[in-house]
Design a protein around this nucleic acid. Sequence first.
DNA 1: TGGTACATGTAACATGTTACATGATTAG
DNA 2: CTAATCATGTAACATGTTACATGTACCA
Lengths: 176, 176
Amino acid sequence: MAGMSHRPLNATAASLLGFLHNGPQTGWDLVATAQGSIGAFWSITQSQVYRELAAMAQAGLVTAGEREARDRRPYTLTDAGREAFAEWVARPPDPELIRFPLLLTVVFGAQIPPDVLAGHLAHHRELHAKRLAEYEALGELADPYAQATLDFGLRYERAVRDWFDALPESIRSGIA
Amino acid sequence: MAGMSHRPLNATAASLLGFLHNGPQTGWDLVATAQGSIGAFWSITQSQVYRELAAMAQAGLVTAGEREARDRRPYTLTDAGREAFAEWVARPPDPELIRFPLLLTVVFGAQIPPDVLAGHLAHHRELHAKRLAEYEALGELADPYAQATLDFGLRYERAVRDWFDALPESIRSGIA
DNA sequence: TGGTACATGTAACATGTTACATGATTAG
DNA sequence: CTAATCATGTAACATGTTACATGTACCA
């Protein structure tokens, strides 16, 4: 079966397989796990999780277990799933994608009432300050890999904060 | 017509309207304009541009001009389009979305051959170093709003570089 | 006269989002 | 008994991506 041709996994599906390396989990649990551990740089919705699990079960990468209490249905990684994950991991990761609507409003600053723009900026500065505080409150993580991604988040949030603070007064405060 | 109910614009469509404030442009030109000025934090494809232009023409936000040489078809902003743009910028921008596949591989580091992970990291470090050099080569921009977004890019890329360089040796070099 | 860049568009599909429908279990 | 939480799933739609088809104009 080694040479079987399957289209490569998408990163969302692959990450579910990644989590299943730690043992069987239900869709519900996977949503919580994913949002908690990779949510900051890989958004995943409930709908997607159930869809990918169904597709991967179809493809034999996971197997759906019997329904337990509360209809919980645990999914288990198969050997084929393990192999698909290994293949995914070996391919060079795509470059990151950033979609930052606030920067769009900044670019079009000349077409926007200065106080409106300043309000958007102030609001987002707050959001980011909160997120930075949350990251800092986490302290040191036991898992060095998780710690590495947290470190990314910390550096990112500090860079964003510094950016806000370095904006020209005319843009930041809405005083033309 | 002020109270007409239309679903709010998506950010991609809105940004096209933003660019059309500087005068009529063809789809082709808009793709180049967009990729050059907001491409770093808002990806836009050609397909999307033609689709959004057609939809916005339908909705009366832009008007398609006569075909010129080489079948060029310039689109012009209408008053309704100007209004729709103004409504869009008044709404608070959504938080940014970051999708960073490399960080997924880092999170699953324990399930990945160390040299494979180290290779991915080295490759991406290179990519980011190049991008930072490109940004730095741009120098000061005349438009303060464009400069503000460039400044974001510079700070982001420096944060990413510093993150790479601060990774634990065991992760970065693949030496277990 | 042949290749390259310009230019528009469609088709097919993958991915992501939002809202809803349904029911089980727990806690107060 | 009732509200909140747990849990699965579907439906409908929006957005994004890739590949292709078609033709124009320039330039070597």
